[in-house]
Design a protein around this nucleic acid. Structure first.
Lengths: 204, 204
DNA sequence: ATCGTTATAGCACGCTTGTGCGGCATTGTT
DNA sequence: AACAATGCCGCACAAGCGTGCTATAACGAT
């Protein structure tokens, strides 16, 4: 058996290259050649790990979702007070630092593309369900009611469910603005906005 | 003088073709050939009115902004009660019917692209200013204070300005969700969400 | 009816794209 | 040292792209 490399690690590197390229040139600028160059690999080398461009981009999109998911999972096992956990949950989805802004760039690019690219449809659907679930968790924490256990289950109180819906929209809006107007919405502004929105949820 | 056609009307037709293509295939699918075919024109015929693809797309994007702007202007001269006008102002920016969903598709596609396409930078900047202004108008109407006269001027009351900011994010989030999850957010849902958010602004 | 301007068509070119494929390099095993 | 499996390279090709350009059709003025 010859030369052995860590395939998972290699794929992770290539995915990071995809993110970098999308951050610089948008999703339509994420050509095979450019990704290969960014990764310091030849076209053939890239093709060895991803048999098609669509597969590469799909994998890169799933990796973003995986990042968010991992952060949320880690957070759910922490043990600070409820208000803080609610805030951290939302911030786990948002570009609260410079590195994460690229993540958000990539995410939004894929979300918009998913409207016309069937290969991303499952991702889009799961993204909605996941985000909504996290919003429900945050509302529950802020209101001191039991957190929903199964993903997809609505909150028993219709009013709280509405708050979760509004929080979901607010989060999406924040993402759009952070990505589109990075010079108008600093990471601090973003944090403050989340804090205030959660205060609204708690007050009423 | 020979064959005379209404250039503005012709351009408007071509722009509608651009919108249709973007709605079907996304902005990266908006090739010159496809737009020409959608408009029932040859490539040369299209080129007669737009000397470059970039010019065509840019014009199509500006036309969307023009639509919104026209609706808002018309609304500001109507004379229903304040709460209604506030609601209608926000709805003028949102995809509240099926036809307008395409408009939102196109708009969001351009907004995302503006991050990496310098030709759209001015558009992006003006979009932010305009949207924020409309949000300030809506807040003013709902709170019964004087509406700002100049675009770009912050509301005198810092609390109200914060509400305008949140409304702006909410509107952007609604747009994203209406575009990305049309089957999960009906136009009625959208209207209800706007109504509720404005009620929050009024209540405090 | 003729002319001259304008509107439209469509071909051709150079370029970029994704992908197929044959070959070379690398390295653990024998 | 020799082998063979694995990792990687980079060219070749067809398809699709934006755009330049020339020819033709349409039509108001004369």
């Amino acid at each position: 058996m010859p030369k052995v490399v860590d395939h998972d690690q290699r794929r992770a590197d290539l995915v990071r290259a995809v993110w970098a390229v999308i951050g610089l040139h948008g999703i339509e600028g994420a050509t095979v050649r450019r990704v290969a160059e960014q990764a310091g690999v030849s076209m053939g080398g890239l093709r060895y790990y991803f048999d098609s461009q669509q597969g590469l981009l799909r994998f890169a999109a799933l990796a973003v979702a995986g990042n968010v998911s991992a952060r949320v999972r880690a957070l759910l096992q922490s043990d600070s007070d409820a208000a803080n956990r609610a805030r951290l949950l939302l911030e786990a989805m948002l570009p609260v630092d410079q590195e994460r802004r690229v993540e958000a760039d990539v995410w939004l690019a894929f979300l918009i593309r998913s409207r016309v690219d069937d290969a991303l449809e499952e991702l889009r659907s799961k993204a909605w369900t996941g985000t909504r679930h996290i919003c429900r968790l945050a509302v529950s924490l802020r209101r001191g009611v039991a957190m929903p256990e199964t993903i997809g289950a609505e909150l028993p109180d219709a009013d709280l469910e509405t708050w979760a819906q509004h929080l979901h929209m607010f989060v999406d809006g924040l993402t759009v603005q952070a990505v589109t107007y990075p010079d108008r919405l600093s990471t601090d502004d973003l944090r403050v906005a989340v804090h205030r929105q959660l205060a609204l949820v708690a007050d009423r």
